[in-house]
Amino acid sequence: PPMDINFSPFSMLPHLADLVSYSIQKVIGFAKMIPGFRDLTAEDQIALLKSSAIEIIMLRSNQSFSLEDMAWSCGGNEFKYQINDVTKAGHSLELLEPLVKFQIGLKKLDLHEEEHVLLMGICILSPDRPGLQDNSLVESLQDRLSEVLQTYILCKHPPPGNRLLYAKMIQKLADLRSLNEEHSKQYRCLSFKPEHSMQLTPLVLEVFGNEIS
């Protein structure tokens, strides 16, 4: 890009929008593999994806987050994203500070891959999301995953790491709700300006909403 673009306060926006768009596709692919998800109506699948997408992106990005440099690495160690980079995509510290705190806390739980994946499934299948029709079906699917997670921790996660682990994981879901809320607030502000919303991808606009249309 031309030099002056790098100095604009939104220089990272197109790049981050691409990354998020790619991640949304991964979230959809993941959701489709959750037992029972595809049996929900298309409307309920869409409602769940729209409301949980940013939470799953935050959850899955923990795998690339490093406590050493407090940064996310992307496609190898030479590409790293720090808070500073995300502020250049229009997000403020009101989102990014708690987000990094969340990443640190989650990293310290030292989850097994199985636990991490189950947590993402439980997050997607939240029965209290707005716009859901069949809340009780979603709840029963979520209950099933919660039971699997608790059984897994009991049988496969040795002490001392397993101590209150399930409760700590559920607390992370609560943290994600407030991160989601703050993200929505900041996204609304950002997408309200056509010069910024035009830098987003069609998928991002569809999932997070398009204030202009």
Partner: peptide, 20 residues
């Protein structure tokens, strides 16, 4: 809202993709 809930074309496409 009305437009949004009716459409979601990309989401629908990505959900149906690869289904047999």
């Amino acid at each position: 809202k009305k437009k949004e809930s009716k459409d979601h074309q990309l989401l629908r496409y990505l959900l149906d993709k690869d289904e047999k």
